[in-house]
Design a protein around this nucleic acid. Structure first.
Lengths: 370, 370
DNA sequence: GTGAAAGCGCTAACAC
DNA sequence: GTGTTAGCGCTTTCAC
């Protein structure tokens, strides 16, 4: 791909610096055409590597384009060809660690295609999501990848009628507009609860974010409490935070909760970062983890490798989600498919990583395994 | 801004779902024009809130647009108006924590303008930077914000001749194409060295990334060793890593270095994350920090609040850099300035945050302060 | 293998 | 206040 001569030579420096010679009018195909003595049409063909062009003209055009420092105008190109090789990727946040990872996976897949990702950030606000979506759709992208299944009616309507493939990612608990790739966060919560119960923990506290708009955290919580209920258990205590450093908040909340309920034997954190804060607190206080208290988070953040103990957590399949989602868009785009042909539904299976903060067997043999 | 009626109503759901009624052809102004019985031109004016339109027609147009679920085509708009309200933001990485923060500041400033940021990621590779830049410039953005001062000749030429404002950010040690906003990383390295020396530490180790393309880390290292040399000191040991979890690497490298050189009394880490790994290691080993060994990192990452001790570090003014850079672009865009009018040069002053891992007075009174 | 004409969907500029 | 005309810089299509 990077080896085709036109590809590399197109974006090369202007050998003759035109910036002082002419008044700063952006160069057009016509300029290259005149400089090379070749018609605009043929110049266009050379620059896009389309159709047959003789080696001679080809060389002359490339030479002229390079000399002038010509950069094609994609706006005009897109309007004329009715094709925009952009994929809108709409995510709640960049500072969450989770989303950059999904982005990376998406980029990797799209790198092998003509498509390019464009990111929009919503900050977990539906009205911002709607605005960002509107802005992006107005550039007529080839597809949309958007986090979550919860959107305003207007947003849903826009996506449904855009005539392009839409992939909702991260979460599968709900009705997709078109395609979905993700995990069931309810199931993830349930799985964690079952694992904890099986390990013999009984007095369980929950610590999470206050964000009512973080639907995935909410669903994990629901799944978690539901599975506990099924085993006749109930959360002993819970606490939610908003803002500030997650690590510090995890520490503080853990301190507060353990002060209120010294008898707790497990803390389930809605993300790894606050979990790490809790872990550091427990270790500092000399609490036996996972003997006296077990801990678990969510996300399997690589960032945290290197803590004194590895926090038990759950892999949310972020990279795989990104890859699959990008793959769906890429396939559809390659087929010239406009999104009408029924969406895919891909539910990935998250796995529990017990780390060092979750004992695997019940201490008193209360619940035999299997 | 969000209160102007056109602004909010433009992006509202199609009340009548057109997706089944017509073959999936994207709607055009003409459709709205016909549906409302108003000329395309006037529809355009209403939708953009330009010029005087009577309340009556205005209402009818809005009604029709909403009904149809019309989303304007920015491609056509941009081509016709020769205006693209996009700002290209080109950064090395999203997973670095540093850049999302800069992005956030940029977005905040641009939110008050018609401009919109579009991110491109280079992964610290010059050839990718060149490609990303080329792609973005081909959309004719209103400005470019790009990390660093080191670019390929081709990249520099493209930016110089693009006829738009260019702001290079993060670093001021070098020659900008147009404007710069950042800190001097050489100075940052020197400052840290001077502070460390003043505090009485003498046997200093350095731990950093192996990336030869992380110019800012390199400059900090240079400034650091240079200031040590001035005081007649030399780094006792150094170690570089690549890949993997920074926290874990910091821990491992610290262990290795202290095993080799038990006499070290200070470790300077090129970033907070590996610094945190080192800190955790020292605390675990019962090493007296900052008595026996002092530690410092770089970046003042909020993420790390909550560690057992606050790591000494240096604030890189990330938010301020983002704000100032976006401000420059926004001002120029508002003035219709094409970037010809001489760039600004803004050098911010990083400050040292001693945290709990850097004693402030020399223990033996070797170097009296001021 | 190359060129000429038409037009993508909008908006600037000017008429009315 | 509203409509008309003429492009924006490309690519499509078709002729040669």
């Amino acid at each position: 791909m990077a080896l085709t001569s036109s590809d590399s030579s197109q974006r090369t420096a202007p050998v003759t610096d035109q910036s002082n010679s002419s008044p700063k009018r952006p160069l057009t195909l016509r300029d290259v055409s005149e400089a090379s003595g070749v018609s605009e049409m043929t110049v266009s063909r050379v620059l896009r590597n389309r159709g047959d062009v003789s080696a001679g003209t080809r060389a002359r055009v490339l030479e002229a384009a390079k000399e002038l420092g010509y950069v094609p105008n994609k706006i005009a190109g897109a309007l004329a060809s009715q094709r925009v090789n952009l994929v809108a990727v709409i995510i709640p946040s960049l500072s969450n660690m989770v989303f950059p990872e999904v982005m990376t996976a998406i980029s990797e897949v799209l790198d092998d295609t003509p498509l390019q990702p464009v990111v929009g950030v919503t900050n977990y606000k539906p009205e911002r999501e709607e605005k960002v979506l509107y802005e992006m759709l107005s550039w007529r992208p080839s597809g949309v990848i958007i986090a979550g299944l919860e959107h305003s009616d207007a947003a849903k309507a826009m996506m449904a009628s855009a005539g392009i493939p839409v992939v909702e990612i991260m979460d599968t608990d709900g009705d997709p507009i078109d395609s979905v790739v993700g995990i069931s966060h309810r199931r993830a919560g349930r799985m964690m609860a079952e694992t904890i119960i099986k390990a013999g923990y009984r007095k369980i506290g929950f610590l999470g974010t206050k964000m009512p708009l973080d639907h995935r955290a909410r669903k994990r919580f629901e799944g978690f409490t539901q599975a506990l209920a099924k085993a006749g258990l109930e959360i002993v205590d819970k606490e939610f935070y908003a803002g500030g450093s997650a690590l510090a908040k995890g520490r503080e909340m853990t301190a507060a909760m353990l002060a209120r309920n010294p008898g707790l034997d497990f803390l389930y954190f809605s993300n790894d970062m606050i979990g790490a804060g809790g872990l550091l607190y427990c270790l500092e206080k000399g609490i036996d983890v996972p003997g006296q208290i077990g801990l678990a988070g969510f996300n399997n953040i690589e960032l945290l490798d290197g803590l004194p103990k590895r926090l038990a957590t759950m892999d949310a399949c972020r990279a795989e989600i990104g890859r699959k989602a990008a793959g769906i868009i890429a396939d559809r785009a390659a087929q010239g498919d406009d999104g009408g042909s029924g969406g895919k539904r891909i539910e990935l299976s998250p796995t529990i990583n017990p780390g060092d903060t979750l004992r695997l067997r019940p201490s008193q043999g209360a619940y035999p395994e299997d």
